[in-house]
Nucleic acid binder design. Structure first.
Lengths: 246, 246
DNA sequence: CCCCGACAAAATGTGCACATTCTCTGGATT
DNA sequence: AATCCAGAGAATGTGCACATTTTGTCGGGG
């Protein structure tokens, strides 16, 4: 009975994390078309792991609201409504208003120096025309603000919102324009330096409304629907079989 | 070889939800001492289900930050530091400041009427001396505020914070005092009615700081550590075996 | 007397096989 | 001709057995 072969001892403790990050990234940067089905068996083949492991990762992603899981019907890449996306931006805006008010008592030269340094980075990226870096740094600016408050809970909540809003940027945001105008970030910092909270809050709200209004009404063309292609850098070549002409 | 008995076909679709709710409640209302180990096998016995089902529920609770899961070491009832609890209250306070500002444009007679009705309920509970209802209604007041904004994301975030802060109330909150002074809630509503946002925000902040300062430094006596006893209403009697004199 | 290493027991993690549910296709009936 | 039902195929859900890791204990050495 125990004709059991030794079985590959690849119980990497960080494999789960890698798969989780890979799927989260693919969903967030738009490599996978909204509505694409994430079949457990396909993903298990692509990543070369057992189905149970994929299953666990998928459920975790579902709990994080990064993908959508329907009982007995599997996981799908979510297809958020424009209204839902605006709701996330609005939540971010409301939260940041509170953050700015809470930040005032903790605002010192060190924090302002860090913000100035970050603004310099943002301007450099904008001048280089590096859109990818601009998007990343633009988000990091808001994280810098909330981190300065020194409350881990707040940082975690805002980080979550930010990661989910960045999902849709690639779909709903017109590529021709830069995401966050650096000047708007700079204006917020100046208001903070002058300890004018009301103005900082107003600038922040205006900033977010600016971003919200720029969102396109209809989603852009679907990027890709082939799972294997989306995860190519992570998939061993041999596991990418000829896909069925479904 | 297939001497497999039919096996109880109890694949209730709502069993998971019931177990999840039971454990969440037990953790949140303090039936289980902070630090208590939640062994999968014990819980499986108590609830009369397979270990895998408990496992899934436990991991979900961990993702929701209601319990603490350490890889290869199992799940425990979290033992938050006073600092962590204050951080949650602070996050709630910062968030509510933003909520109050966002609420102003949406504030109409209907919302004010709902708030007034709620205040009446709170006062009634306080006069009855019904502490349990007071705690519940006090939390519901803040939910009412955020729900009035009409943003599902904000409501979800605040609901999560509230459920986690209510965990610790039973541990760190002195039982002799009422949780939220109804008058403080009433004052916030009055400030809103006068459309004086600055005052409403200040009152709200003062209110939360009031609650934070009342927290006891040292946790109270541990209520219970016996899993079977904590889940008694959910556990079939026969599964409650004589506990090992560990 | 204290500390360290190894062994044993128990708890968690994982893969596999089976059960259940859903989807899709093909055909018969109204 | 359109609709509905039935059956096959495929995908998800679940329990079980085994592997791995951790923890508590005992014995020997410093």
């Amino acid at each position: 009975m125990p004709s059991r072969q030794p079985r590959a001892p690849k119980a990497d403790p960080e494999t789960d994390e890698a798969i989780h990050a890979a799927i989260a990234r693919a969903v967030m940067d738009g490599s996978l078309r909204a509505g694409t089905k994430l079949a457990e068996h396909r993903l298990a083949e692509i990543f070369g792991v057992s189905r149970e492991r994929i299953r666990k990762v998928l459920h975790r992603l579902g709990a994080e609201r990064r993908i959508e899981i329907i009982p007995n019907r599997g996981a799908r890449v979510p297809q958020p409504t424009l209204a839902e996306i605006r709701a996330i931006y609005e939540a971010h805006r409301v939260l940041e208003a509170g953050v700015l008010m809470a930040l005032l008592p903790r605002l010192d030269d060190a924090v302002l120096a860090r913000l100035d340094a970050h603004l310099a980075e943002e301007r450099a990226a904008a001048e280089r025309g590096d859109r990818s870096a601009s998007v990343r740094l633009s988000g990091a600016f808001h994280l810098l603000l909330v981190d300065a408050v020194g409350n881990a809970e707040l940082s975690r909540i805002l980080r979550d919102l930010l990661s989910r809003s960045s999902v849709m940027v690639s779909v709903y945001e017109p590529a021709s324009q830069s995401i966050c105008a650096v000047d708007e970030h700079g204006a917020i910092v100046e208001a903070l330096r002058a300890r004018d909270v009301a103005r900082a809050v107003a600038l922040s709200a205006h900033h977010f409304q600016h971003v919200e209004q720029r969102l396109r009404v209809d989603p852009g063309p679907a990027p890709a629907t082939d799972l294997a292609a989306a995860f190519r850098p992570y998939a061993p070549a041999k596991t990418v079989r000829a896909r069925r002409g479904r």
